[in-house]
Each structure stands twice: as C-alpha cells, then as structure tokens.
C-alpha cells in the first residue's frame, strides 16, 4: 500500500526545530516527564530574544518549519500567543506548525471564545498548521486513566475538524504502549479515518510508542517493543487508506528500526530535530543529523527528499 501511494520510492523528511515555549502545565499527565508547576525552580517561559534566535538559526540551517508546542500555562492568555505569532511572522518567512489541540482548547476556554474563533485568531496572527499531539489514544477509557485532565476524544477531534474547516492542515498522532487494548487502537484509527473522510485535512499520521523514562506511568507501563511498533505501524498504513503519509519515528525507535519501518508502511522519516539546547555548536550537530537521515534513507533503498510542512518536495538528495 505504501508502494501504491508512493510508487516513486521517495522517503521524505523535514528540516525543522521543535521549540517548547513553556514547560509549565496544568494537565500533569502520568506519561509526561516534561511538565513543571508554575512555582517550580525549573519552570520556564521562553525568552522572546531566545525564541527569535532559535528561529534565525533554524532558517540559516535550511529549516522551513518550527514546531511550537508547550504546556498549558495558566498565566498565558490568547494575546500572548497571537502577539508571539505576529512577531515571528513579521521577522521571518517560516512555517509555524504549532499548538496541539489541548493547547488550543485551553486558550479558547481561558479567552471565553469558541474553538473556531480561537483558531481564526491564531490563523490571522500567522499560525500555518497544527501538530497532531495530545491525541495519545482516542479512547476516553484510556484517557481518563492516564491523562484525566486532558481534553477528551470528542474535543480533540473537534479542534482538528474546526482547523480543517478553516483550511488549516494538521497531522494526527497516536501514542501507544501504555494501558490500551487492541480495541482502543482500532477505535483511534477509526476516529481519525472518519474525520479524514469528512474533511481531508490530515497530512500525515504518526504512531509512536510511550517512552517510559522519567514519568510516573513509566514505573508501571511502557514496554512496547520493536515488534509491537512495526505491527501497529503496518496496521496504521493499512487502515488509514485516506491519509497519504505515515511517519516513522526515529526519535523513539532509533534509526535502524525507523529504516525497517519504511518496509512496514512508513514513507516519511519525520524531522531532523535540530537540538533544542545545542546553541553554539548547532551547525555541526545539525549537519551530522541531516546527513545521518539522508544516509539512513538511502541505505534503506529509498530516495531521500527534503519536504515542507505540506509534503511538497523541496530538494532531492
């Protein structure tokens, strides 16, 4: 099926940077090792100058997108996000792929606006597309157990529906390997398939496995192996016949398993992930990573190509 959808044997990747603007989050999901309380000494909100420098660096390294995601910070309101977007767009030409559905729903609730109006305000301010995070498993049974404060399945789907109706493209993710059953995974895929049949707004689907390190849930769950990953990935490719692209997750699986994933239905290698905390040495770190990805794709028997957010090929290697 991958070959039928992508007969040219191209495997794409994007050069982008993941910027986490804050780690303060009121949701406190049990699988998360990133969040902090507002008063915690490690809590942060990104400094505007640092943000701008990170974007400048991304562009200088050939990046075409920044992925902006963060916690649900109780002190930040919608104007914080819209003015951040405006400043970015005023200074740079870059695709802003930002704010997963839980963030958008939280902004809307705090502003007393509908999801649609919130999305429209973000779009006006410069938001281009939305990442598919926060989907975890679209089963309220699982969500209420592992992330009880996070928006439910219907709310996640509603944010994506509204975004698609406003003409914004989004991705969808699935995090598995916690406490879900095969039925939960099937329900997740069915929900994504149905919304895609309705709107056609999803560009790609990204399954990945729960990473147990450092989170409360990691003490009791989280042993999805390579066999689990490859089987689920193949299932995603087969089930989601209306979603063009399936991403392999080298960040969670390692390069070699991601290569194998290209034979289990994946046609995209995700992002080069310019390191967040690499500052001065970013140029070198990046070149290694980008070349690694190009080599990894090529040695798997596929043609590497850099793409943009919307899966248009920018450059073949």
């Amino acid at each position: 099926m991958r070959l039928a959808l992508h007969p040219e044997r191209v495997v794409t990747f994007i050069v982008d940077r993941n910027i986490n603007y804050t780690n303060v989050c009121v949701n406190k999901c049990s699988f998360c090792a990133f969040y902090k309380d507002e008063g915690d000494e490690e809590a942060y909100i990104i400094d505007e100058g640092v943000l701008m420098e990170k974007i400048r660096e991304t562009i200088s390294l050939g990046g075409t997108q920044i992925l902006m995601q963060g916690g649900l910070h109780p002190a930040l309101d919608l104007s914080y996000y819209t003015s951040m977007l405006q400043k970015i767009k005023k200074e740079f030409t870059i695709n802003v792929h930002g704010f997963s559905p839980p963030e958008i729903a939280y902004m809307a609730a705090k502003a007393g606006l509908t999801v649609r109006d919130t999305l429209a305000a973000l779009k006006d301010a410069g938001l281009d597309s939305i990442p598919g995070g926060g989907a975890e498993i679209l089963s309220d049974r699982v969500r209420s157990a592992i992330s009880p404060r996070k928006i439910n399945t219907a709310a996640w789907l509603q944010v994506m529906r509204e975004a698609h109706l406003l003409g914004m493209r989004t991705t969808a993710t699935m995090m598995f390997g916690t406490i879900e059953t095969p039925e939960d995974i099937a329900a997740h895929l069915e929900a994504v398939w149905r919304l895609q049949a309705e709107t056609g707004g999803f560009t790609a689907f990204i399954p990945w496995t729960f990473q147990p390190g450092g989170s409360p849930l990691g003490r009791t769950a989280g042993h999805a192996t390579a066999a689990d990953y490859l089987r689920v990935l193949a299932l995603c490719r087969l089930y989601l016949d209306n979603v063009d692209n399936i991403q392999a997750s080298w960040v969670t699986q390692g390069i070699k398993t991601a290569q194998v994933a290209l034979r289990f239905g994946a046609n995209d290698f995700g992002s080069t992930m310019i390191e967040e905390n690499v500052v001065k040495a970013a140029g070198v770190a990046f070149m290694v990573t980008k070349n690694d990805i190009i080599n990894a794709i090529r040695s798997s028997g596929f043609k590497p190509a850099q793409r943009d957010t919307f899966y248009n090929v920018l450059n073949y290697f």
Binding site: A296, S299, G301
Partner: peptide, 11 residues
C-alpha cells in the same frame, strides 16, 4: 566507511 548496514540490511 560511508555505508553502514541499515536495519533492513541487518535483517
């Protein structure tokens, strides 16, 4: 060595 075994080659 510019080529190293891919996961596919390993299998």
């Amino acid at each position: 060595v510019t080529r190293y075994p891919s996961g596919i080659d390993d299998l």
